[in-house]
Design a protein around this nucleic acid. Structure first.
Lengths: 142, 142
DNA sequence: GGTTGAACCTCTAGTAGCTTGAGGGTGTAC
DNA sequence: GTACACCCTCAAGCTACTAGAGGTTCAACC
């Protein structure tokens, strides 16, 4: 039986985060001691490890909810899980493309900085003059 | 003189976002008509364009605040602006490295999916078994 | 001059995915 | 039996916006 703290340690999660996952129904309500402290078993450890791993891969909590649900029904076809992963892969590739464009522009800014006064600063100039910019207008979130 | 709506159009910003920037002090309080509607001039247009461009490059609002401040003092040395940009570049490169690792793992998951039952699903299996995972434990935000 | 309708106003609350803090109770080792 | 690390709940805060309610103003047209 694990306390919430040791579960947190084993999974690289913060204690508050575990309680948060319970609150939103991603983790089940665990057993409690007489005094009301949570105690966890191996099932919960596995489930939390699954969640954290998926989070590290960038899956949203909603996607993880679906994946856990699929994982709980081993006889359903796995097309759905596959679709979720493909969606995630696509998103990752889009973000990569955007970040690569940003890196290019940032590198250009930094390399052209003369080290003089801000009046001549290439960094500020580039930011001021949007016309030199390659990136498009729509999305911002990285 | 521009209304908030046309300023929004010209810069690819939402009206609410402009008001938000004003609220947090990133945009100045503009002049108003007798009826109380905001009216903007070219200075504000430039400032907002600067902000949006910097946001597209992934700078945080706090970083942008510093950059605007530097931009307002053309005779200060530009080392600071350069440092902010370098910091940003570093962050972008870190995120790129992480995303590339994610892409690799996601691709592996997706390509190995057999299309059978969830019980045999490679996607879920990989998520369950953290030991196959290459990514490290610390940061999660993409 | 009157009327219409798009665009404007303020204020509040919601989004994701947590994190932080206040104020207090529990469990265990010595 | 007492110290103290750990646990509890509840509420609020974070970033960077976005959405909606309920009401007002502007500009064009007749």
């Amino acid at each position: 039986m694990l306390t919430i703290g040791s579960l947190a340690n084993k999974t690289g999660t913060k204690v508050q985060t575990i309680r948060y996952y319970e609150q939103i129904g991603l983790m089940p309500e665990p057993g409690r001691t007489e005094g009301g402290q949570r105690r966890y078993g191996d099932d919960e450890l596995d489930r939390l490890a699954f969640i954290r791993h998926a989070r590290q891969l960038g899956f949203s909590l909603e996607a993880i909810r679906e994946l856990l649900d699929l994982s709980d029904h081993p006889h359903r076809p796995c097309l759905e899980a596959d679709a979720i992963a493909r969606r995630q892969l696509k998103q990752v590739e889009q973000r990569l493309a955007r970040l690569e464009a940003l890196r290019t522009e940032l590198k250009r800014m930094v390399h052209e900085c003369s080290g003089g006064q801000t009046a001549d600063c290439r960094v500020l100039e580039v930011l001021r003059d949007h016309s030199e910019c390659l990136t498009d207008h729509d999305e911002i979130g990285a």
